[in-house]
């Protein structure tokens, strides 16, 4: 079961007000050059089918409710990846009054993929890390606490 969880991460991509940069890089990660399907990654159309929620963008006021709803719709065990600097810190849009970010105010975030935008290889690495977390987490409610990791951090 752990192996299956690690080897089959299905994503649901959600744009919470991003500038498109990260979203296009997610799509590029599926393209022939990077081909995330090698890791079993599939982009799913419905959040109910997904394991990992990929959020881009600084979470605008209009998007907050939708982020929470979609997070609740993803069946457990689940993980959340914040792709790009926007969901992590709201980036250059900091102190805009129409933003409700950063993302971790609203849903627990497991993996941060920093960059503006991150490169597709970093995104794939983030997905791989999230899949590891997912495999460890399982259906055990005690493991539901977010495991905060960063792509690109130096392993001790």
């Amino acid at each position: 079961m752990c192996t299956a969880r690690r080897r089959s991460p299905w994503l649901f991509h959600m744009n919470s007000g991003s500038c498109n940069g990260c979203d296009i890089e997610i799509v590029a990660a599926l393209s022939p050059r990077y081909d995330a399907e090698q890791l079993g990654v599939l982009l799913q159309g419905s959040p109910r089918h997904a394991d990992i929620l990929c959020v881009t963008g600084p979470v605008t006021r209009k998007a907050v409710g939708a982020v929470k709803t979609v997070y609740d719709q993803v069946p457990g065990p689940k993980a959340v990846i914040a792709i790009g600097s926007c969901p992590a810190t709201t980036n250059v849009f900091i102190d805009s009054r129409t933003l409700e970010g950063p993302l971790d105010k609203h849903v627990p975030v497991d993996v941060y993929v920093p960059g503006c935008p991150p490169r597709p290889d970093a995104i794939i690495q983030g997905v791989a890390k999230a899949a590891e977390i997912l495999a460890k987490r399982g259906n055990n409610p005690q493991n539901a606490e977010p495991v905060v990791t960063f792509v690109g951090e130096v392993q001790p």
Partner: peptide
């Protein structure tokens, strides 16, 4: 593209079995 590994549909199936259902 390289495409999915050989066991992929099996993994997908097993993983889905272990997921919560609404």
């Amino acid at each position: 593209r390289v495409g999915p590994p050989f066991m992929q549909p099996f993994f997908d199936f097993v993983k889905l079995l272990g997921k919560e259902t609404p």
